[in-house]
Every structure is written in structure tokens, then in C-alpha cells.
Design a protein around this nucleic acid. Structure first.
Lengths: 358, 358
DNA sequence: ATGCCCTAGTTAATCGATTTACTAAAGGAT
DNA sequence: ATCCTTTAGTAAATCGATTAACTAGGGCAT
């Protein structure tokens, strides 16, 4: 990391003036009025009805000219409302969290809310500490994304992909049963009977439900997924490497299969690389089915067939739900589960089972 | 989105107790002491030296038992320090921002800082409003990521990939000249002379520098990039679609080329799809060079040769620099530019120019 | 016995808003 | 002339901490 001194030429872009902040008290003094009057007028309080129109004009003008900005700390302290929520994620760059956050933010910004993000990196100490620190910072509620709840929720909590029922926590989840039906159904209809699977990491909230629904959907069709054809993803890197190594070890075991149901698109991409390195062509020799439908899925080679999860929507539902609870409109009937529907996007990575293969 | 009522069975996970918050005053009353004493003791102030050890013990014990948590708003208001910074990004799910943010967060959390994230979506109104709102919320400084500065920086600002020199703004940038040398040099050495390029979107901070350094590096080697071989990316979707359509229109123009230097890996992935749809094989007929080295780059088919940008590091440098300025240790000598070095990662998407081709 | 210092705290001001309760002056009704 | 109302504001309490300035009481030296 090198360093260059400024060479003093400035490109002054379009810029708006912005002096040092001035307090309400100082502004009031400047105008020869009391802070009370300014506060009433600037907040357009109904109690400002008795203030003369010209006085109001003077106040607004001065506020603009002196660039008055109310101190949010002071205001929040007084009115006991911060317009801020806390967001817990495993890690920011894992794609999944970022997509959900995008939906969260879209909704929050409409309501003039801000949020503090905290990554727990699956560490138990952080899972306990972060909610506490966020509460100290007076967040009004918490949105957790793919995060186990390790604290007594003293605030309203909405958990995206949460599966534990906890008092005060609303879970926003995918209809996993439907997802499994779509996925296994698709593979089954293409003639696949020997299906391998990449199971999610231990720490992922969806791992268990996803796996159980897949087993159920298979059993329903009379196929039993062989335990030897299942590998669990290891490590928390957001890279396809995780799926690559898992698939490598699956292949090393030597068991035959005609389709692979990956835990997500990222691991599916890694899996494809592993398969091709073994000389297996996708989808001719092995069909690969992803999960999520990330941006890259459609453009991968081969384009991924995948179960689409509406992550942005899940984020915005989470935010809407939390805001609704905060506004008190949800009075009493707090839903414990809100579920969204998956869709299957059929592309090039799955195909009818071939007879030459296995 | 369907909705299921709670069925009252609870999995009580490991949970720590957490009553309703108690104020310092209430705790003091409970102990028959003054708030001052508690504050001095709890903050381990040197002025607490005259407080008896057993009293201290009593205080700590009560604080723990009653689950006392200092109200951050009140404290921050008093000490005029929020331990919070604002982060401006174009959009969260674009991969680039998320990677940088990851580095930012890693550094900030070490210093017990939190951050408020705000997405401006390239909208001029938000580019002006958000910094103001963040300042109202008393953030101590701002980190902008790939974001034009449209405000007079009344706070310390660090801009990742900023290229305008503005008073009070430190830019953390890639050494673009070196990046262009690596990229063009690599293609040149493989024998490529007809090089096409995908230029970044208008709004992207790096677009101009990247393009100028590429032109310079080409010229230096005696090749002039034909204006007909340059297409600018359009639209702000974080999907490869952007690179796909740009490449389509490039191909439609009919001009021949043996290599394509994409603006980033995402657009490179889209480009590859477009090329292959036209029957052009990568890298046999056309070499494709990406930029960034996102997680998926190594696992794409073909694996992308790309110019690696240390995004996580750029984020952590930005955070370190800002924290340093905030601590006052940087007194005076504020660097206006901090640059980091790119590296080239050679994989499968580039190859020696073929003679059968063009 | 007087002054001084030390111990173990407390009182009150402050950060910057909001909000309840109040008031001085003018105008109108009786 | 007196009372009431309206107008146009102001004073002071409050949110929950931190912190500068102070004090009551005991011990010690001279």
C-alpha cells in the first residue's frame, strides 16, 4: 500500500454548502426566540398554531441559512425512539445475506429507518454479545438472517430462515417442502433414481429442514437416498471451493449416481468443476441441481437448473413485518411463521438420465 | 406468502436472561448510592479510587444482577462520541460493495465501532441527502464505496475507488496503471493485437481511469484499441446480463477481435455466454480477461483469467485510515491517496492467439 | 486545639433536543 | 371597570448518562 501526497489541485464537484452544525439553542438565541418556539415550529407541531406566520417564516429561513440539523441523539433520547434496527448476518459477502439485506434496506428506507449491521461469523461469543450491544444502542428491533437465536428476545425479532419457534421471534421461511418436491420431482421425472446430495453446513439454519424435506420427497417417490451418496459441506467460505471439495470426496468414495442435488448454487458450481475434472459431463453424465438462483446461475456453463428462493422478497417481508410490529399495528397476533414459495428454474445443468451412463 | 399460527411448542435454546432495561438512576436508588458513584465505578474511572472496595463490589454485583446496560444515546450525547460511522454504497448485492464492506466491518469491529449502511442506487437525490442524514445521526465519519462525493465533507471521509481530489477526502484506490499493464501485457504477450473492451458504466468511479490506463498500456505496445471494439456497459443490474448484452451488440457490429478485456468478472461471465452463443470458443477463438477475481471466477467454465483487486483489504485500509483520522493521530498529514496493488491470476479464459481464427 | 489532608462519597451542570405547564399582553364582552 | 379569551410566546422538566466542583467527617501533625 503506497501513498501519494495531495498535489493541491481540486476538482470541486457540484457540492452543497454545509457549515459546522448549530444547536437549536444557538439558533434560538440568534433569532431572539426560545428553543421551545423553534422546536414547535420546525416540527410543525399542532401547538405551533399560535405562532405568527411571519415568525414561522423567520424561523424556517434561519434554520435553512444556518444549516440547522437536529441532533438525532438528543431527539431520540427524549422521544425514546431511534428509528434504527439491528441486523445480524453470518457474513456480508456470502451473497445470500447481501440479497436479503437488499430487500431489508429497500423497505426500511421507505420508513426512514436505518440499520446497524453486525456479522457473527458463526462464533458463539458474538451470537450472544451482538444482540446485547445492539440493544444497548437502542435499536428498536432485530432482523436476523440465517442466524441462530442465542438470546432472550427482549426486542421484536424477525429471523429470515429461522426454524426454531421462540417467543417474540417471527420466522420468515421458504416453503421447503414445496422446494424439495420441485427439485426431487424434476430429477425423478427426468428418470433419475440414484441421486446424490450436498448437505448444508452444520451451522446453516436451512440444513436440517432442507434435508428432511428432500428425504421425504424422495421416499414418496419410492427412492431412498443412499447415505453413501450424501456429503456435508465443510467450512464457511462463500466460495464454490466448499462444494468442490465435498464433491471430490463423494466421487472418491466411488459410488455411482446420475444426479446431484446441491445445497446452493455456489456449491453446485464447485460440484460441476469437480465432476468435470473426473471426466463426467454435466448434464450428460450427471445432472446438477442448484438452489437459490443467484445472479451467476443463469450464466454459468452449463446454465444452472435451480430452485429459486425469493431472497430480496424475504428481506422485504422481514422488514415489513418488523416495522409493523414496531408500529403497534400488529397488536397481539404476532405470526410465528411467514412462508414464501420457491419456483424451479429449469436450465441446462439437468437432463434426462442417459442409458449409456450408469 | 402464507401464514401459519404458532402451535405453542417451544424449543428453548441456550438463552441468557435479559430483563427490561434499568437506568443508572434506578440502580443507584436501589443501592442507596448516587448515580455519580456508580458511573465512576462502572467506568473504572481513576476518580473512583476513593470508593471503598466493598462498595465497588456491591455496585458490580447489582449491575450484573439487575442487568444494567448503559443507554448508548445518553452516553454518546454527553461525551460527544458515537463510535459509529456511515457507509455509502451503490447497492449491497453487487458483490463488489459486499466484499469491501466485509473488510470495513472486520476493522471497525476491532475498534468497537458500528456502522450505518445506506445505498444510493446512483440516484442524485440520495447522493446529496444520505450524507446529511448520516451526519444528523452523528456518525463520526463516512466511508464511501464506489460513490461520487456530492457533498461538502464536514466529516472525515474515505472513498474506496474515489478519484476526485476533494479536501478532507482520502481515496483508497487500486493502482490502475499497473492493473492495465498486467492485463494488456498479458494479452499482448499471448499475441493479441485486436483487443476489444467492455467499458464500465458511466456511474462507476473506476470507469474513466481504467479506460485511460488501458489505452495507455496499449499505445505503449504500439496497438491502438479500435473505437469500434469498445462498448460501454449499460444499466446497473449486478447480473452478468449487462456484459452479455454489451458483448452481443459488439458482435453485431461485425468487427473482428481476438481478445476481450471486460470491466469486471461479472460482465466477463456474461460476455463468455454471448461469445459462445455466436459459436466462438473461449479461449480458442477469443480470450476473455476479467477484473476483480470474485469467488466464482476460479470456478467458472472456463476459469477466468482476471486482474485481482484486493477488495477486502481496500475496505480494511479504508476503515483503518478513517479510524486513524478520528483518533487524531493522523494530525495534519492526511493522505489524499492510498493505493493498493493488483495481481493477475492466469486461468483458462485466455490463451495464445490462434492462427486459424482471424 | 487548630489547621490540613484524606476518605468516601454527593450535588449540580451538561450534552441537545421535546413537551408540559405557565404567563404577559391585547382584545372583546358585559 | 372587570373578567374572559385569545395570541404569542417562554420557563422548566425531562430523556440517561458523564463529570467538574464540592462536602462531611475522621485522622494526624504541630
Amino acid at each position: 500500500m503506497s501513498r501519494q501526497p495531495s498535489d493541491k489541485k481540486k476538482k470541486k464537484a457540484t457540492v452543497q454548502k454545509d457549515g459546522d452544525p448549530i444547536s437549536l439553542k444557538a439558533l434560538a438565541e440568534h433569532l431572539g426566540l426560545s428553543p421551545t418556539t423553534l422546536s414547535l415550529v420546525l416540527n410543525e407541531s399542532p401547538k405551533a398554531s399560535s405562532i405568527r406566520a411571519d415568525t414561522k417564516k423567520r424561523i424556517f429561513k434561519a434554520a435553512r441559512e444556518m444549516n440547522y440539523r437536529p441532533n438525532y441523539l438528543a431527539r431520540s433520547l427524549r422521544v425514546q425512539k431511534t428509528n434504527t434496527i439491528g441486523v445480524l448476518v453470518p457474513e456480508l459477502s456470502d451473497g445470500y445475506s447481501a440479497m436479503v439485506l437488499n430487500g431489508v434496506e429497500a423497505e426500511l428506507s421507505k420508513a426512514e429507518y436505518f440499520y446497524l449491521t453486525a456479522s457473527h461469523l458463526h462464533r458463539e461469543d458474538l451470537l450472544e454479545k451482538l444482540p446485547r450491544v445492539l440493544a444497548e444502542r437502542q435499536v428498536e428491533g432485530i432482523i436476523a438472517v440465517d442466524t441462530p437465536i442465542r438470546f432472550e428476545p427482549s426486542l421484536p425479532v424477525v429471523n429470515v430462515s429461522g426454524h426454531d419457534e421462540i417467543d417474540g421471534v417471527t420466522n420468515v421461511v421458504l416453503n421447503h417442502q414445496h422446494a424439495a418436491e420441485l427439485g426431487i420431482g424434476h430429477l425423478y421425472n427426468l428418470g433419475h433414481r440414484k441421486i446424490a446430495a450436498l448437505k448444508g453446513q452444520e451451522f446453516s439454519s436451512d440444513t436440517i429442514v432442507r434435508w428432511e424435506t428432500i428425504l421425504e420427497a424422495s421416499r414418496k417417490r419410492g427412492i431412498e437416498i443412499d447415505a453413501k451418496l450424501v456429503v456435508q459441506l465443510q467450512g464457511d467460505s462463500p466460495s464454490p471451493e466448499v462444494g468442490y471439495s465435498a464433491t471430490k470426496s463423494l466421487l472418491a468414495a466411488g459410488e455411482k449416481f446420475t444426479a446431484l442435488f446441491a445445497f446452493n448454487d455456489i456449491s453446485a458450481i464447485g460440484a460441476i468443476r469437480a465432476l468435470e475434472e473426473m471426466g463426467l459431463r454435466v448434464p450428460i453424465d450427471v445432472s446438477v441441481l442448484g438452489f437459490d438462483d443467484i445472479y451467476a446461475a443463469a450464466f454459468h456453463n452449463p446454465a444452472l437448473t435451480t430452485i429459486r428462493q425469493p431472497l430480496f422478497e424475504m428481506g422485504s417481508i422481514a422488514a415489513k413485518t418488523l416495522l409493523n410490529r414496531l408500529s403497534g399495528e400488529a397488536n397481539g397476533d404476532i405470526a410465528s411463521i411467514l412462508s414464501v414459495e420457491p419456483t424451479i428454474i429449469v436450465r441446462q445443468s439437468t437432463a434426462r438420465v442417459s442409458n449409456n451412463g450408469n
